[in-house]
């Protein structure tokens, strides 16, 4: 009995996971696919030709999205890693205030701070720039990085580092050979999350990028809003591909490393 329930759950899980994605493959090859046809009545490569044409700007947007995602992830690591370590391993006055400061951006709608910062960015000439968009993406990314990594650091003992230090290792080699391998699985997952948060940003990029910085969600949105589902599908699949790749690399960590995902449980 229990086995039957398990298989029902598992099979519906696979169906539900794939149902919104797989039909988009078919849509991306369809020319005419109207109710009530179960399959396109005319097939075509046009949606893919369009996606790969320069007019669609998908290629350009892909590169911008990727560059912004990588810069934002790196910046999040650079500022987020020391902060998470401090929050996890040291007790200091005002710690709970700092924790709150760093967590509030997760709770407060991103659009609120973006609308406010927009005016300042216009004056500083940061709108319409790559840096401006990266900065606004950092608002949600840093908190997620700190949330996950402070949990990782909390589960990570410093004994090994101390031993290495007493054995005469310098700070760089301690980090390189002791700290980094210890936190790497967690770092992978939190970097994946920050990258994906940046990868999926739409309205913040529209507002701060002002049309000069074009990212993938911005080329996709008009086609979904315009119910042009064939083109939406081909662009969607290009948009999804790197995300799935990232998941393949981090899936094991997501599933096994309790401290990492447990980080989300520490808010």
């Amino acid at each position: 009995m229990q086995k039957i329930i398990r298989w029902i759950v598992l099979i519906s899980l696979v169906v539900v996971a794939l149902a919104p994605i797989l039909p988009q493959f078919v849509w991306s090859f369809s020319h005419r696919w109207l109710f009530p046809s179960l399959l396109p009545s005319e097939w075509s490569l046009e949606p893919w030709e369009y996606a790969f044409s320069t007019s669609s700007r998908v290629g350009e947007a892909f590169i911008s999205s990727m560059a912004i995602g990588i810069v934002v992830s790196l910046l999040s690591i650079i500022v987020g890693l020391p902060a998470s370590r401090a929050l996890a391993l040291y007790d200091f006055r005002g710690k709970s205030v700092i924790e709150w400061l760093l967590m509030v951006p997760i709770i407060v709608p991103g659009i609120v701070a973006t609308m406010g910062i927009h005016q300042v960015f216009i004056r500083l000439r940061l709108t319409d720039t790559f840096i401006g968009v990266c900065l606004v993406h950092l608002i949600p990314c840093i908190p997620y990085m700190v949330l996950v990594m402070s949990s990782v650091f909390a589960n990570y003992g410093t004994d090994l580092e101390d031993t290495a230090r007493t054995l005469g290792a310098g700070p760089v080699s301690v980090f390189r050979y002791v700290t980094l391998p210890g936190i790497l699985p967690g770092l992978l997952v939190s970097t994946m999350f920050t990258f994906l948060i940046s990868w999926g940003q739409y309205i913040t990029t529209v507002l701060i990028g002002g049309g000069s910085i074009i990212t993938l969600p911005m080329v996709l949105f008009p086609f979904i809003a315009g119910t042009n589902y064939s083109n939406a599908a081909s662009i969607s699949l290009i948009f999804v591909a790197p995300a799935i790749l990232v998941l393949i690399f981090t899936s094991r960590q997501l599933g096994r490393e309790s401290a990492v995902m447990g980080g989300f449980g520490k808010l």
């Binding site: 044409s53 007019s55 669609s56 008009p222 086609f223 809003a225 315009g226 042009n228 083109n231």
Partner: peptide, 10 residues
């Protein structure tokens, strides 16, 4: 310009 038509775009 409004960008919701692949035809106009190309």
């Amino acid at each position: 310009m409004w960008g919701g038509s692949d035809k106009i775009n190309s």
